[in-house]
Amino acid sequence: MIIVTNLTYTYPKSTETVLKNLNFEIEKGEIFGFLGPSGAGKSTTQKVLYKILNDFEGGISVIGKALNDWGNEYFEKIGVSFELPNHYLKLTAKENLELFASFYPQESIRNFDGLFEIVGLEESINQRVEEYSKGMKMRLNYIRAIMHDPDILFFDEPTAGLDPINAQKIKKHIVHLKNQGKTIFVTTHDMTTADEICDRVSFIVDGEIRLTDEPAFLKNKHGKHTVKVELENSQTAEFPVEDLGNNAKFLDFIKKGEILRINTQEATLEEVFIKVTGTQLQE
């Protein structure tokens, strides 16, 4: 769906190259995550892909067509949820959506009541956005991105500023969209979100992709192949995962007391990131 080859980008009037030979592909129906610290080039990559930044070097193909060959009809096929809320504060949420919806083919526009329900804003549909909290504005960002039923979605920090319940709602809906065949490109420095929803992730640092793979594979590859057993009497021990059911020491140990918990010792995505890139994610 999206093929990026040797993408290099330098902002006008700057000498610093912010994207350096990026190569990645995003399949149709895939959630692809770009993970990296602030200033790594995540948002810039998205801006190039949604044609806000031009004059890039390298090749980008979207839905089988070079990005530069797409005209304004490209914007009917994509939806963008920005990192920060951006709405007319003096208008109500519904007025905001109605205004921007008027620029798309009307047959593609989804029912507004349904959209507001998805993100739990149905009670506030006629409220002016200036009265919204940051989290509510972010949820409005989200439904504005999906209101015209685009094939490709760009979400920049989709759960930033949201409480855990609403963050969960958004994450579930993103997965729901993927199941409908939408292609989704997420940028985030929130490892939990990436781990929960992304099919594949790329680690990006200083404008370079250091690694691309499935989160589960990465966690497994970079973790210890052991299980840690903790008993209620505070005794703990680690055992190799291989042939665990026939491991006599393991079987003896779990008879020594009530089991409090048994955990595999796979790495977290954040640990993998730090190990691979040598960079902290949360800044």
Binding site: I52, F75, F82, N86, Y88, L89, F103, Y104
Partner: peptide, 15 residues
Amino acid sequence: EKDTNVAKVYGILPI
């Protein structure tokens, strides 16, 4: 519109 970043939304509309 520029201050509140709403201008960016117009940047991704099919117009």
